[in-house]
Design a protein around this nucleic acid. Sequence first.
DNA 1: GAGCACTGC
Length: 677
Amino acid sequence: MVKAPPDHQSLMAVDGQESSSILFKPLTSPSQLPIHSMRKKIVQTVFSNDCCIFLGETGCGKTTQIPRFLYEAREKKLKHMMTKKSQRNKYLICCTQPRRVAAISVAERVSSEVNQKCGELIGYSVRFDEAISRRTKIKYMTDGMLLREALLDPYLRQYSIVILDEAHERTLHTDLLFGIVKQALNYRKNSKKNPLHVLVMSATMNVDLFSNYFNQAPVLYLQGRQYPIDVFHAQEPQTDYIHSTLVTLFQIHRSTPLNEGILIFLTGQDEIDSTCKSIKQIVASGTEALEPIIVLPLYANMTTVKQMLVFKQTSENIRKVIVSTNIGETSITIPGIRHVIDCGRVKTKIFNPQTGLEILKVQHISQAQAWQRTGRAGRECPGTCYRMYTEEEFEQLPSTPIPELLRCNLATAALQILAMGITNISAFDFLSKPDEKSIAAALRELTYLRAIQASTDNTYELTNDGRKMACFPLDPKLSRCLLAASDLDCLEEMLKLVSIMSVDTIFLTSSNLNEKMKMQRQKFTMNEGDHLTLLNVYKSFISNKKNKEWCQANKINRRNLLRACAIRKQLRRICIELQLNIKSCGTKYRLVRQALAQGLFMNVAEYFKENDYRTINDRHIVKIHPSSVLFGAKPSLVVFTELIQTTKRFIRDITVVEPEWLIESNPDYFKTRLSSK
DNA sequence: GAGCACTGC
């Protein structure tokens, strides 16, 4: 048995959710959070440095309390200096979060702590939703939202303090913000009127990396509140982690009180569904007398209603078991969990910049993730965590996961950096610098998309189109589709299509989709391919007034389609601002396919032999995914949205195109590549 | 004839 190291013993709630007793107390009330004893030191450290790093585990209250400390300290000082109110209004504090729900719920919580409505003194800003007023002084926002704002003002001049929270997660957006705030710091240091302070908040890891990056910025350690968690490792390496999980589950079940919930981490939908089934079978088989169990799956691709079941209070006499993907690791907090079973694995998408291939693969988690999972057992009281791997195996895990920036296509990021006036991407001050090959690939892609053009020595500048493309919250390929559709008088259709492509699948996937259902789904099918089929579904959804029953009957994911509607609205507004030509082509869908071809021209595959296709770009042999309406058909030339390797290399979301369309729009690119011209 | 984790603008 191994105890969690002290740094990790206090992993409890999302920051600030640890105690309901401080919820409605007035501003000045002393709190039992240890962070309050450090208030003076915190304030002093922030204001006497350009940048500082605060380390503290979730549960120490840093997210809820620190922005308030800083606001109150500044307010006091300014009042003392008899600063005019209009002057004081300038000082806005922002605090970024990787997730929407976190930004919103923290803003609401802190607002209620100071007895105000959210959106007054404390507000939030996330995509499609904000609560901000002229009085707002503390703004919680998603990292992506601040990045959007940085496109308009790279020096972030409306903020006096920028807090980058949960920095250890190393999301793409936060990593880009690192470079941006560093630049803004330098720029504003000289303008003494409006200096910027930056605060990086993180769990206990990567300290030196952050500190070195900001010229040896001072580091402050924040004490969290402690709930000890006993950690047990497997004695021997396990060959079948699902089997080990089941054995462990029933050991816990036999030996602990029934009101203690169990959270199991596995890798994916299939695995989770079948494990849930096995658990139920074992209990039902009656080979031994077992107390009743409620087993609930949890993954993102479930309806919200089904996800909500995990929050439901169960009776004292029944065991609650949740089998979850890593959505349960950070995004969703389940009450009543006392035991965690961690299989030590996670399913991840890996991007290979050399081949441009994406692979979805089950991989080992990092030590940081292991502790995050462990922490889920000790949110309300002491707990236990069972790891389905040995201590030696744990020691060999990487300490942190690979930052997103180092394992994704950089085209979008590069376009954003260029749009902020930084002309040499390789010279951008990355916290972790991506491979030169990845950067080169991104610049090549943007050049082909006519978003940028090479200038002198390694620098690039945006084209007119590129400036427009940077305004869309989209993959540049899809932004190009919109511009092409504007030229071809079919922008209304492309807006709908691009919006659907921006959300997860709009079809409900289930293993027991029967023949009748498949027939029904076929009524949306368009012979030209999946994109027009998706457009068809969208249009039917609208003409059926977004009806719930219609979605159920057609096995359509209503939540995702509603999101697509919201995205379309946002994109359409941007199109109006950019004065694009918003027209509908009616049923002249040929135009839509032509516009698609212009954006997706690097994703072209031509028929090779039997069921094989060959991509134009890298000559990969691929197959049409069986979920495509073109599965079994053998069109000679197609564009696709996604190329992914699972059991085989598949292309997904496919549309039939004609070679002339491709050659006309990009003659140079296709001169040497297309064999069927 | 597959089977896709999670997040964000």
